[in-house]
């Protein structure tokens, strides 16, 4: 439990920040999915804030760098995929640093991010929509 959970918290702040502009550029079921994704990341953030209570956890910044400007539906979907992949990576990295309940939380977080990334790839018509090792950097 060293730097892995603070890194996960940073990624969750960034995901929550990104889903604001993402949601604006989407409509219908895609917008609903964006709002649900944002809510899921807020839940993960809240759990991390509790877990890291009293450890001098990093505060949320006013803004986070986006992988590209969100100007339309296509860029919104691309950013959503990247946001989920990045969050999946930090949660995967947290697994070896956790046991028991915290490992279960990290695994559920990794799984949620991986499933949302899959959903966004389907909306964006990215092929294939699955990756072999979610959260692992491509070799």
């Amino acid at each position: 439990m060293t730097g892995e959970l603070p890194a996960a918290l940073e990624a969750e702040y960034a995901a929550i920040f990104a889903y604001g502009p993402i949601g604006v550029k989407l409509t219908g079921g895609e917008q609903t999915a964006a709002r649900a994704a944002e809510a899921a990341h807020r839940t993960l953030r809240d759990a991390l804030v509790v877990a890291l209570q009293g450890t001098g956890l990093p505060p949320a910044r006013a803004a986070y760098a986006l992988p590209e400007p969100i100007v339309d539906r296509a860029s919104a979907l691309r950013v959503a995929i990247v946001v989920e992949e990045k969050a999946a990576a930090v949660w995967r990295a947290a697994l070896p640093a956790t046991v028991d309940t915290q490992r279960r939380q990290a695994l559920d977080a990794l799984t949620g991010c991986a499933v949302r990334a899959t959903r966004w790839r389907r909306y964006a018509k990215v092929d294939p929509i699955t990756v072999a090792f979610p959260g692992k950097a491509p070799a």
Partner: peptide
């Protein structure tokens, strides 16, 4: 064990994404 947790976790997550796909 810790050194296997990331690999096994990725495999669990991948199987969940298969359900989604």
């Amino acid at each position: 064990p810790n050194h296997r947790a990331a690999l096994v976790g990725s495999i669990a997550a991948a199987r969940a994404t298969h359900l989604e796909a």
